[in-house]
Amino acid sequence: MTRKMLVTGGAGFIGCNFVHYWKKAYPADEIVVLDALTYAGNRANLAAVENTEGFHFVHGDINDTPLVEQILRDHQLNTIVHFAAESHVDRSITGPDAFIETNVLGTHSLLKAARSVWLAGDGIDHRFHHVSTDEVYGSLGPTDPAFAETHQYQPNSPYSASKAASDHLVRAYHHTYGLNVTTSNCSNNYGPYHFPEKLIPLAITRLLTGGTIPVYGDGKNIRDWLYVEDHARGIDAVLNKGVAGEVYNIGGHNEWDNLALIDVLCTAMDNAFDSDPGLSSRFPNAAPSQGKSCHDQIVFVEDRAGHDRRYAIDAEKTRKDLGFRVTVGFEEGIAKTIGWYLDNAEWWSP
């Protein structure tokens, strides 16, 4: 079907990258972005599509159910791609209430609006796609098989518990009311427009400003890393080929422990300064500008409470059923990411 799409959280990291991808791949489709523009949302992230035909931005809250209903009706939308979420684990430990409000109640608000508009009368052809996380599955040991879609939910932080709850609500609205839903659980994303609180953008921006890079515990916690544009391609596959009511894992097949990942970033940054002497004048506080290695900026800090040891995604179902494959290798993705932060200091410096 022709997509007329509401993208929630479309001014955030993954959401804006998805919007950029979709407008390039499907320029005739209409997209309405709904975003509350909290600390991690930035309307400037959408500048490249702001004036394109069929793009609209609404500053609002997903918990405002009447607003969501109005948007769906006014624009005659038939698709929701739901990114809007509180997602930083550390913040969920110190302030879990916001995670319940946005991730659980906000998702329920969207589901209520979709049910009201799309299932009324004869109903319309539609899709509600819910973007979730591998963290709902809990933690893996070093030799455990990767998370498949059938893995038992075992969330260990307020963040992952709130996402697990939202996943169950989406499932319930399909089985109880017949809402046409799909859910995807992704591994850790990286790439442009990433607010510098997560590991990769935090490390890059601190390397460039001379700050330290904090490493939790022994640095051996393992994550599976997925370039954000590949995530967008995965959601594209789910929207166009996925079966209603199904869950699809989207992963990078790219496991790194935190310390090894930071070593890659430090080496790449040292090499960037070696190959481009002009960087030293632009980033005078960076270690290479002072004749030092970026590795000197690594410090070990006390481990995070309830820190999951390892995540890994088994995306075989998505590959087999939908034909999805990762296209951006890790070396290429890291180079693109570092290059973006080097070229966009005015975006992250404030």
Rank of each mutant, 00 (worst) to 15 (best):
residue 91 R to F: 14
residue 24 K to P: 03
residue 74 D to P: 06
residue 159 Y to L: 06
residue 241 K to S: 12
residue 187 S to T: 09
residue 292 K to P: 04
residue 18 F to Q: 03
residue 56 H to A: 12
residue 15 G to P: 02
residue 280 S to P: 07
residue 193 Y to T: 06
residue 197 E to D: 15
residue 253 H to D: 14
residue 344 N to V: 13
residue 303 D to M: 11
residue 16 C to A: 15
residue 39 Y to D: 09
residue 225 W to E: 03
residue 84 A to T: 04
residue 53 E to A: 15
residue 189 N to P: 08
residue 147 F to L: 03
residue 123 G to P: 03
residue 52 T to H: 09
residue 227 Y to L: 02
residue 197 E to L: 15
residue 84 A to Q: 01
residue 194 H to N: 15
residue 218 D to T: 12
residue 115 R to H: 04
residue 111 L to W: 02
residue 47 A to Q: 14
residue 333 G to V: 08
residue 291 G to K: 09
residue 49 V to F: 06
residue 222 I to F: 07
residue 161 A to D: 05
residue 299 V to R: 12
residue 251 G to I: 05
residue 300 F to E: 07
residue 332 E to I: 10
residue 145 P to C: 05
residue 224 D to Q: 07
residue 259 L to G: 02
residue 132 S to N: 03
residue 215 V to E: 01
residue 231 H to F: 14
residue 132 S to R: 03
residue 282 R to G: 12
residue 248 Y to N: 00
residue 128 F to T: 00
residue 29 D to M: 10
residue 263 D to Q: 12
residue 12 G to F: 02
residue 313 I to P: 00
residue 298 I to C: 04
residue 213 I to K: 00
residue 164 A to T: 02
residue 170 V to T: 03
residue 103 N to K: 01
residue 27 P to R: 11
residue 211 G to M: 06
residue 240 N to T: 11
residue 94 T to R: 14
residue 186 C to I: 11
residue 58 V to A: 06
residue 196 P to N: 14
residue 167 D to S: 00
residue 179 L to P: 00
residue 61 D to S: 08
residue 323 G to N: 07
residue 111 L to Q: 01
residue 289 S to A: 14
residue 193 Y to W: 11
residue 151 H to K: 12
residue 172 A to I: 10
residue 149 E to L: 01
residue 172 A to V: 11
residue 206 R to D: 11
residue 207 L to R: 04
residue 54 G to C: 11
residue 152 Q to I: 08
residue 277 P to T: 13
residue 210 G to I: 08
residue 130 H to V: 02
residue 50 E to R: 15
residue 135 E to L: 15
residue 108 H to S: 07
residue 325 R to V: 12
residue 166 S to M: 02
residue 64 D to N: 15
residue 236 D to C: 06
residue 11 A to G: 08
residue 235 I to P: 00
residue 328 V to M: 12
residue 268 A to Q: 13
